[in-house]
Computed example of a mutant assay.
Amino acid sequence: MTARTDLLLELRGVHTHIGAYHILHGVDLAVPRGEVTMLLGRNGAGKTTTLRTIMGLWRASQGSVHYAGRDITQLATPAIATLNIAYVPENMGIFADLTVKENLLLAARGASHAGQMDSTRLDWIFALFPAVKKFWNHPAGKLSGGQKQMVAVARAIVEPRDLLIVDEPSKGLAPAMINNMIDAFSALKAAGCTIILVEQNTQFAKRLGDEVAIMDNGRIVHAGRMAALAQDEALMQSLLGLSI
């Protein structure tokens, strides 16, 4: 199988076991460079396991993961993170006792204090997520769920990233915050970042996605352009049992 040159990430026949459980059953996933790929599916379909396998948090028992033409299947998670890949898990991974500033500082390479962080980059993040600036010196654990989600994404992009992977970014967000998150991801894409998003909110997916892959029972059962799927009500119903 020859890799397409326009793909940044490709999973080929990936199987993942967690203990005695066989979760992924031959996942084939192609992520085009510079686009937003939505990973959709019912609860328990294998979406989070797919993300964790990409990041090396769970090891593929069969198949391979290729990033920028390189096989990263056997790399440890810290080594994968050095490839300019950032991952925001569903639980956000916020350090509750640290301030927003301290949370971002932890992800800023080569900065030992806030004054060494890239001020231009920070201003850009503040424009994307005004709450990050507003609560800069507040304990992150005191923020609302939506504000924590913004801090988590801001921390992931405090350094420029080639690939951003986010698990359910709109979960629990008010409509106004969802619009803000969509604007932020659109700006990241315009800046050249490739994005993979796991989502349950189909309206969010419809507005933001370029590509879509739908999972069921640990497999990709549909892949194509998001706009085409959004126009096919019957297919959406059959794949997800949902109306988009």
Rank of each mutant, 00 (worst) to 15 (best):
A3E: 08
R4L: 15
R4I: 03
R4N: 15
T5P: 00
D6K: 05
E10H: 07
L11Y: 08
V14W: 02
H15V: 09
T16R: 03
H17Y: 11
A20M: 02
Y21H: 14
Y21P: 00
I23M: 09
L24V: 12
V27N: 01
D28I: 12
L29T: 07
V31I: 15
V31D: 03
V31A: 02
R33L: 14
R33I: 06
E35F: 01
V36S: 02
T37R: 04
M38N: 08
L39S: 10
L39N: 11
R42S: 09
N43Y: 08
A45M: 11
A45I: 07
T48G: 10
R52V: 04
R52I: 07
M55S: 05
M55I: 00
L57H: 06
W58H: 14
R59Y: 00
R59V: 07
R59A: 14
A60D: 07
V65R: 02
Y67C: 01
Y67T: 00
D71W: 06
T73D: 10
T73K: 03
Q74D: 15
A79Q: 15
L83S: 00
I85F: 05
P89R: 10
P89E: 13
P89L: 13
M92A: 06
F95Q: 04
L98R: 12
L98N: 08
L98W: 07
V100Y: 11
G110W: 03
G110L: 06
S112G: 12
S112H: 14
G115K: 13
Q116G: 06
Q116V: 03
M117D: 02
D118H: 01
R121T: 08
R121V: 05
I125S: 07
I125L: 07
F126Y: 14
F129W: 02
P130W: 14
K134G: 00
F135R: 10
W136K: 04
H138Q: 15
H138F: 14
A140R: 04
G141P: 09
G141Q: 10
S144Q: 05
G146L: 12
G146M: 11
Q149D: 11
Q149K: 15
M150E: 07
V151L: 12
A152Y: 07
V153H: 02
A156K: 05
A156N: 05
E159C: 09
R161C: 10
L163H: 06
I165H: 11
I165P: 05
V166F: 03
D167Q: 07
D167V: 04
P169N: 08
K171C: 02
G172H: 06
L173A: 13
P175R: 04
A176T: 14
A176Y: 12
I178R: 06
M181F: 13
A184L: 11
K189Y: 03
K189M: 04
A190I: 01
A191K: 09
T194H: 01
L197G: 05
E199N: 10
N201V: 11
F204Y: 06
D210R: 01
E211F: 03
V212I: 15
I214K: 05
I214G: 03
I214E: 03
N217F: 13
H222T: 05
H222G: 04
G224C: 11
G224M: 13
R225Q: 13
R225S: 11
A227V: 12
A227L: 10
L229R: 08
E233F: 06
A234Y: 08
A234D: 14
Q237R: 15
S238D: 15
L239E: 10
L240F: 13
S243F: 09
S243T: 15
S243W: 00
I244A: 13
